[in-house]
Each structure stands twice: as structure tokens, then as C-alpha cells.
Simulated scan of single mutants.
Amino acid sequence: MPKTIYDFKLNSLSGETIDLSSFRGRPIMIVNTASKCGFTPQYEDLQHLWSRYGAEDENGLVILGVPSNDFGEQEFTSGKEIQGFCTRNYGVSFPMAEKSPVKGKQAIPLFKWLQQEGGFLSQPRWNFYKYLINRDGKLVRWFSPLTKPASSRVEEVIHRVLE
């Protein structure tokens, strides 16, 4: 099993490779997303965090969305549909991986690693679980969908990983 987040590669919505080693030394927030969920408006807060802490700062926070259809089949079929929806409705400009399974035996290796690092309770049980990774590539904290990305609890941990 990989030791840090930097040992993973994912495909983007457009089919390009997202090599997480290219984010080495940067904190990362990974979020399992869905376009047709009650928590979907959290995209707005995620975009705000990306704009505030990472988009223009090569050492800043990376936001990485991982769309999934695991919970209530709430994701579009194609990457083009997902990207169009996210851009049109929320102005999403942070990296987005291709639609992937995030729970159970079918989960992609990244989410198996996150569960191993965070323990059983960290396994996503719905869309918009948030995982904060420090500059050393280790999981620091995870949050359920009930905790909004712009909440003081999340921002406090972001500030710690950015120090």
C-alpha cells in the first residue's frame, strides 16, 4: 500500500493524468463529489477555498474533486457533463478526477488508502467527504458532508496545514 498521497495517479475528467506527486509539498483537500446531491452547493465553498488558498500560490492548498456515483447515483455519466455542470453552475477551476468508485471493494486505491489512514469511520458514507492532507502527504483530518468546506472547523485545519 502506498505511504503518502504522492504515490497516486488519477485520470482527470478530460482523460489526462493527475500525478499527485506533482503536488509534493503542498497541502491537499480531496473531496468525493456528485453533481445531483443536496450537498452539491459545497462546490461553491470549495472553489472559494481554491481561489483563496491555492489557485495562485504554487505552495498553497490544492483542492481535488473526485466525482462518484456510489451514493444515490447522483453523478452524470460523462466527464464532459460533469465538467460542464461544475464550471457552469459553480465556476469550478480546481482539478477534478474522473468519476470513480470511492467505497467498498470497488473503491479506487486512493480512497482505500484514505480509509486505511483515517480508520473505518473515515470511509465515505455519502458525497462530499473532505480529507485534508499535510505537506508531507499524510492525512491530517477528515470531515463528513455535514461540515461545510467554509466552516471555521475546516478553515482552522487548513491554516494549520498551510503553516
Results as ranks from 00 to 15, higher is better:
Arg52Leu: 13
Ser122Thr: 09
Gly118Ile: 11
Phe76Lys: 03
Ile30Cys: 04
Leu114Met: 08
Tyr90Gly: 00
Glu75Trp: 00
Arg135Glu: 04
Tyr129His: 12
Tyr131His: 13
Ser12Thr: 12
Gln116Gly: 14
Asn134Gly: 13
Val102Thr: 14
Lys148Val: 00
Glu163Thr: 12
Gln123Ala: 04
Ser14Leu: 11
Asp57Phe: 10
Asn127Thr: 12
Leu10Arg: 08
Ala34Val: 13
Pro2Asp: 11
Glu58Pro: 15
Gly118Trp: 06
Thr17Lys: 13
Gly119Arg: 01
Pro124Trp: 01
Tyr90Asn: 05
Asn134Ile: 11
Tyr129Asp: 04
Asn11Ala: 09
Leu121Asp: 03
Trp126Phe: 02
Val154Ile: 08
Leu162Val: 08
Asn11Glu: 13
Val154Ser: 05
Ser78Ala: 09
Asp70Phe: 04
Gly38Val: 15
Pro2Trp: 00
Leu20Phe: 04
Trp142Thr: 10
Ile108Arg: 08
Leu10Gly: 08
Pro145Arg: 14
Gly60Ile: 03
Gly104Ala: 10
Phe85Tyr: 08
Gly72Ser: 15
Met96Tyr: 02
Val31Asp: 07
Glu156Trp: 05
Gly118Pro: 09
Pro109Ile: 10
Ile18Pro: 04
Phe23Glu: 01
Gly65Met: 05
Glu98Met: 11
Gly84Ala: 12
Trp113Phe: 15
Ala55Thr: 00
Arg88Glu: 15
Tyr90Ile: 01
Thr87His: 03
Met29Cys: 07
Gly119Glu: 08
Met29Leu: 08
Ile18Trp: 04
Lys105Ala: 09
Arg26Thr: 11
Arg52Gly: 00
Gln106Tyr: 03
Arg24Ser: 04
Ser122Phe: 09
Asn11Pro: 03
Glu44Pro: 00
Asn89Tyr: 03
Leu139Met: 07
Gln116Trp: 14
Gly72His: 14
Trp113Ile: 12
Pro67Met: 06
Tyr131Met: 12
Met96Glu: 04
Thr17Met: 09
Gly118Met: 09
Leu146Arg: 14
Glu155Ser: 01
Glu58His: 00
Leu64Lys: 02
Val161Ala: 11
Phe94Asp: 02
Phe76Glu: 02
Lys105Asp: 11
Ile28Ser: 06
Glu81Arg: 14
Pro109Leu: 10
Val66Ala: 09
Lys138Cys: 08
Thr17Asp: 06
Asp45Tyr: 04
Gly25His: 10
Tyr43Ser: 01
Phe23Ala: 01
Asp19Leu: 02
Glu58Gly: 02
Trp142Glu: 02
Ser151Asn: 15
Leu146Glu: 14
Gly119Phe: 00
Gly118Lys: 05
Tyr90Thr: 00
Val102Tyr: 13
Arg153Cys: 10
Val161Asp: 05
Ile18Ser: 03
Gly60Cys: 12
Phe76Cys: 01
Gln116Leu: 14
Val140Tyr: 04
Gln116Arg: 14
Phe120Asp: 03
Arg88Tyr: 12
Arg141Met: 08
Ile28Trp: 01
Lys80Asn: 10
Gly119Tyr: 06
Arg125Pro: 01
Ile5His: 03
Asp45Phe: 05
Lys130Cys: 11
Lys105His: 05
Ser22Ala: 09
Val66Gly: 10
Thr4Met: 11
Leu114Ile: 07
